[in-house]
Computed example of a mutant assay.
Amino acid sequence: MQQQQRERARANALGGLACSLVAYALTVPYVVSTWDRPNRAAMLVALCAVLAEIVVISLLPVRLAFKTPLRANLVAGLWSVSCLALVAFNASLDGGLDSPLAPLAFVPVVFASLVYGTVLVTVVGIAGVACAAAIGVFDADARWTETFVFAGSLAVIAATCVWQTTAARRRREELAQASRTDPLTGCLNRRGFAEHFERVSAAAKRSGSRFALIEFDVDDFKRVNDVYGHDTGDRLLVQLVRRMRTVVRTSDPIGRLGGDEFMVLAEGADREGAERLAQRIRDVIAPQVISIGMAVYPDDGETFDELYRAADRGVYREKQEHHGAAPGASPRARGRSSGD
């Protein structure tokens, strides 16, 4: 995952470098064709310095420049600010607000909104407004109204970019939440629960701590659906989850892994703690009959599948006992042990 994030950050950086390279390469013919005007040598030197910066950043090793999100943001932020500084420098030497180079100040701000996060877009936007103001201030022939309009236009673009970036981030968060949540009960779905399990198990492996999986499903739930209808069955599940939340810690997620199959991950719980929590769940859900099984990390396994199978066997034994049949191996557990 971290490697993917670093690669994505590097790809974004290379995209920004390519965009900037095209934008600033377009200024070279302009500088050369107007060589008879003042300050052309200084402008060309500034362009060459930025082109050299592009080469250096593009050759930086991924682990060095993009090892952490903070470092990647620093590289991107410094690059964007240096681009804006180049625009301000060259436009000021080329006549200020009348220079065709001045509108290039919009390029880093717009690109930032497509790639960076809200904070970095805000920083680049502020730097862009400062760049526009600097061009106007150093333009001896510009009136304050011209500077105000130019800087104000860039401020509007920057604010729009910040707003759009924030809205896009919220949409991504909502989609990510929806993809990991059961729409009926609000619990984690199988994918979301498995991802939470991976985080908890990794932390437990580092610290040597324990946690428990407590699985339960509703006895005769199919009969509820058949006799009273699926709407009634759905309302029953929602009510059971509401009751269960009153005895489960908010930090311990509840997952809906199937139709009437639920699981709780209790961090720090040993077998005795898991049994106590299971009893509280029974009490709060009563008089509805449920079958419960549990598994403790690492006693009953270390992977999600191992612990799931162990808890599922307990569910099946209880279900058989409730129906007066001899306990046996769970068909679901057998299916998972064969390679699920």
Rank of each mutant, 00 (worst) to 15 (best):
D141V: 08
F148N: 04
A127N: 12
D141R: 09
F148Q: 04
G125W: 11
A127R: 13
A142N: 05
G136C: 12
C131A: 11
V124Y: 05
E146Q: 15
A133Q: 14
A142Q: 09
T122H: 02
L154T: 03
L154D: 11
A155I: 00
D139S: 05
E146W: 07
G128A: 14
V124T: 14
F150T: 00
F150E: 04
G136V: 10
V137L: 15
V123S: 06
V129G: 11
L154G: 12
G125A: 13
S153H: 07
L154I: 02
A134C: 12
A142E: 01
V121W: 14
E146I: 00
A142W: 04
A132Y: 02
G136Y: 09
F148E: 00
I126N: 14
I135K: 02
V123K: 04
A132Q: 01
C131D: 01
V123R: 08
T147H: 06
T145S: 13
V129K: 06
G152E: 02
V124G: 11
V149S: 12
A133D: 06
F138N: 11
D139P: 01
A151D: 03
V121S: 13
T145L: 08
A151V: 03
V124Q: 01
T122V: 15
A134H: 07
G125C: 08
G136W: 10
A132R: 00
A140S: 14
D139E: 11
C131L: 03
L154A: 14
G128K: 08
V124L: 04
S153N: 15
A140T: 05
A132D: 04
T145K: 06
L154N: 12
A132P: 02
G128S: 13
A130D: 01
V121Q: 15
A155K: 10
E146C: 01
E146G: 13
A127D: 15
A127Y: 10
R143C: 04
A151L: 03
D141K: 13
F148Y: 07
F150G: 00
T147A: 09
A130P: 06
V123Q: 06
F148S: 15
G128Y: 11
D141Q: 13
T145C: 02
A155V: 03
W144T: 14
V123E: 08
A133H: 03
F138E: 05
G125N: 14
A134N: 03
T145G: 01
E146F: 00
V149M: 09
C131M: 09
F138L: 14
W144N: 15
T122N: 12
G128P: 01
L154M: 15
I135N: 03
D141N: 05
V121L: 10
V121D: 10
I126K: 09
I126V: 15
A127W: 11
L154E: 13
G128Q: 09
G128C: 10
D141F: 08
L154S: 11
V137E: 12
F150A: 11
V129T: 10
T147W: 03
A151M: 06
A133P: 00
C131K: 04
A142P: 02
C131S: 12
V124D: 08
I126S: 15
F150S: 04
A140V: 05
G136L: 11
W144H: 09
I135R: 02
A134V: 07
L154K: 11
T147R: 06
A133C: 05
F148V: 02
I126P: 06
W144C: 10
V121T: 12
E146L: 06
V124M: 09
V124P: 11
